[in-house]
Design a protein around this nucleic acid. Structure first.
Lengths: 391, 391
DNA sequence: GTCGTTACTTCCGCAGTGAAAGAAACCTGG
DNA sequence: CCAGGTTTCTTTCACTGCGGAAGTAACGAC
């Protein structure tokens, strides 16, 4: 409902499809695009002409690797001018704002973080406005802003509910737009990360895949037909009721044996604290587990088996072409990967196709980058993806 | 790869879409079809004209319920002439062949079963040919045959592997076509049932739903964007490694606590037999559980909780718009429905949207009807849906 | 009986496409 | 060096299928 921006010129459907294909899948020749989109060569000449004239696409020299190998006339790859526009992405946590500037291709070109000293919506918007202003001085062509917030977000604009900021129905997009004049998209942080995987990450070109994040909480994103599947409980404590192991630990968050209790960083730290009295960081716990200390090793092993069970269940029921594991809490795979794999095997049919698992330890800048992708989408498509649209 | 049939006349894409909409969603006026397919009124006149001329569609009197309520010119519903063609569907089990004749709308108009006295492919094909010949005498316009087999089927034509028939790479479609001259589709029995739910059952018009069958084994079908998702382990003992309850029973089939061990009819009968020494039928066990006999009650309760867990996991990960439960083994819901619902609730987020659960106790004729739907699809679309196509 | 409403038809123009033919730019092999 | 093959890209052209506008038909409401 909040489409204010002039999107990518007035592109026709076909032109937009071509531009998107080039944006997402790197430099491509006209012939290659024709094959990918099932169009004729003639159509491609027609469709690319205005894109080249407008400067959105440029002809680039052919990659040296391919040149000379094939016979026939060499292809003339087209590419997006990724640096022509810049995008800002923010990830807001309880006490920090992480910011990045990216190109049209979602490559991070700058980082800019600041402590969050207040939770008052107007003051937060002020701070975001200031950060954007600073970034605008250093980067030309700022075309949009994406903001990722943990919690429920409506219409890609309004924070419906965010426990850690104590916000309810804060029209954040509007507040920041007023201060900057730039189009602003607000979205659930997991949503942004998922979109960035769809467009620029491990999910490029896939029909069906899953993003699972482990960090302060559990995040889950299902992508079907290239689109995120909306769900009601979106990021309101996902995984609290995914009972992975009924005999698992009981923690302050989540039901007994739930994915949250077994896997999130706070829950793992809680378990160690409750058992040993020592308050270790997540990294310290992983190190201790790797070193063979019994209690951390047991907790991490249990977490690894829980992760394996989850991955297997997702594989069994969703049959995704890929599962992307992201977040700050996937480091346990480095320590207890064997337990993860073993558990996956035990819960899968021997004949089942193995599901590619892509692990991506992410920091907060990756979350911010995900938010920036939302801004890119608004420019390219004229509207934000996802949101809780009725189907 | 086995498209021999002349499909539904030479229909254009638009015409086929109209015909399919009418076939699946009952009598519809042109205006209504235009709305559903996002076409203009003019286009509908154009598209329906050849369909009416060819006799595929007819104008029918308006439903009395709607007439007179709205103002304006009354609509002129169009309908498929469902009786113009007949289709045969078979379900082959170890010792029986169940057959049905259906209309184009998949309504069963006749049943015809016969014991299967041999597993020799040629003799089985002979028997199917005879049964088809008998049915052809009684029903005009036989347009195709669908055969459902438990096991792996390739290219909608070849039984790659069927343990209970001891078949490997049997070109069943070809064998039956030779004997009848009719187009024949062979498919995994679950696949047929799923397609029939997509076109004529609970999944009509849904983007995303799941079919879960419980009987001699577990069957699982995932439908996304109206299409079945192919999978490698298709009906080769699905659910043997879905560990639902690690402390569950160990049975001859399936891993300990697997869906197969907990839910299939043979496993439930095995548990009762092992514990009490009595060899009861599934129905007797359900009755005993309902009557409060401790052992049956415990086994059925455990099965109900396993089913609840499965449904919850599917709901959590797939987020389907509906789950259809089918098969001979879903009767336990009548006896232990409360345990099912309670378990679902315990494994779901309180804010999550409840997933509609449709229970459909099916007999072997329903499986045969599912196979007949495959034949309908071949006529309508010119090719069978599904199969293990690469994506 | 007129007016408003909804359903359907007819006709026209147009956008987007593929097919075909041609030009361009490379390789290969004499 | 030059012909022949090959792949890419451009140009032209005709066609398909669609929407929009205007017109007709069939009803209810007042």
């Amino acid at each position: 409902m909040t489409t204010r921006t002039a999107s990518w010129l007035p592109l026709s459907t076909g032109e937009r499809a071509v531009a998107l294909e080039v944006l997402v899948h790197g430099p491509l020749s006209r012939a290659e695009i024709a094959r990918r989109l099932s169009l004729s060569a003639g159509s491609l000449t027609r469709l690319t002409k205005p894109l080249l004239e407008s400067g959105l696409l440029v002809e680039v020299p052919e990659g040296a690797a391919l040149a000379g190998v094939r016979q026939g006339r060499p292809s003339q790859p087209l590419d997006i001018v990724a640096e022509s526009r810049s995008f800002v992405g923010f990830k807001i946590t309880e006490d920090m704002v992480y910011g990045v500037v990216t190109t049209l291709r979602s490559e991070i070109v700058a980082r800019h973080d600041r402590p969050l000293t207040t939770h008052d919506p107007d003051r937060v918007a002020d701070q975001l406005g200031e950060m954007i202003a600073e970034l605008a001085r250093a980067h030309h062509g700022l075309a949009g802003v994406g903001i990722g917030v943990g919690g429920l977000v409506r219409d890609s604009a309004v924070v419906g509910e965010s426990p850690f900021l104590s916000w309810r129905n804060v029209r954040l997009a509007e507040l920041v737009e007023e201060r900057t004049g730039l189009p602003v998209v607000v979205e659930n942080d997991v949503g942004g990360l998922v979109e960035s995987e769809i467009w620029f990450g491990g999910g490029r070109g896939l029909e069906r895949f899953v993003v699972l994040t482990i960090g302060a909480g559990i995040g889950y994103g299902l992508v079907l037909g290239g689109r995120r599947v909306p769900c009601a409980e979106e990021d309101r404590e996902f995984g609290r009721h995914w009972i992975v192991n009924p005999n698992g630990p009981l923690t302050p968050e989540g039901a007994r044996g739930s994915a949250v209790s077994l896997l999130t960083i706070p829950s793992i730290r809680y378990q160690i604290r409750a058992a040993t009295g020592r308050d270790l960081t997540y990294e310290e716990i992983l190190d201790a587990a790797a070193a063979g200390e019994p209690m951390p090793a047991r907790v991490i092993d249990e977490a690894a088996r829980a992760l394996g069970t989850l991955v297997a269940q997702i594989s069994n029921f969703v049959m995704p072409q890929k599962i992307v594991l992201a977040g700050e809490g996937v480091g346990l795979i480095d320590v207890a990967g064997d337990a993860v794999w073993e558990t996956i095997r035990a819960h899968r049919h021997p004949l089942a196709e193995p599901v590619p698992l892509e692990t991506k330890v992410s920091d907060f800048h990756d979350w911010a980058r995900g938010a920036a992708v939302l801004a890119i989408q608004v420019l390219v498509l004229g509207t934000a993806q996802g949101g809780a649209n009725a189907e």
